[in-house]
Design a protein around this nucleic acid. Sequence first.
DNA 1: CTGATGTGTAAGCCATAGCTTACGGTAAGT
DNA 2: ACTTACCGTAAGCTATGGCTTACACATCAG
Lengths: 109, 109
Amino acid sequence: MAYTSALTALADPTRRAVFERLRRGPVPVGVIAAGLPVSRPAVSQHLRVLKDAGLVCDEAVGARRLYAVDPRGVAELRAWLDRFWDQALDAFKAEVEGKPQPTKRKKSR
Amino acid sequence: MAYTSALTALADPTRRAVFERLRRGPVPVGVIAAGLPVSRPAVSQHLRVLKDAGLVCDEAVGARRLYAVDPRGVAELRAWLDRFWDQALDAFKAEVEGKPQPTKRKKSR
DNA sequence: CTGATGTGTAAGCCATAGCTTACGGTAAGT
DNA sequence: ACTTACCGTAAGCTATGGCTTACACATCAG
């Protein structure tokens, strides 16, 4: 269940800013920190959390280190949310169509 | 930007447990608290946060109050994640095509 | 080899957030 | 009307987490 750590990671505003900055493409740490109101070590710590959550991957390029979004982490989060979406919609539909039973599972796809 | 509060809300493990309990259908507060290792007021506070984030909606039924998942909140989160997914994939593709060996990574699925 | 650049890590401070107990309010049952 | 059940809110305590400064290591330029 890696989506739990992913959600925890994306909860912090600064960390979201870091992550959204990476959306445009691979960026070194210093560049990210330059566009944010926090220090560079803070960005390093945020990247550490995002990496542990499987949301970003890094690559050493000379003295620098490029960070990029890891599509796999995003995919996991999407999968969890989609599963949630389907079940919630089924429950909602059953609720609207007259309420036979609170917890009733029709069909799942 | 309601997805920010949604992500913040889903970061807490207990709050995720509350939310996932609601996935099966509308449930009163007491039932949720009975299945969790926290007190009932704690669950109330969590539901408050989830409601403010647009993830759940409530309905008074007699002395009880039923909470259910609000599909709209889930949809917003999905939209944000999908937009992220597309841009991340584009950046990843451009990175692969542009440079010979940008990042050594396999395709997951 | 020396200095400069880029980065990760450790220690410490402080604000935030989650939990508990206590209380007030509304609805149903007798 | 009185009692019981169910729920939300307030106040307070404590732990977690994010930020900073200081330090250590690796790489490139000269």
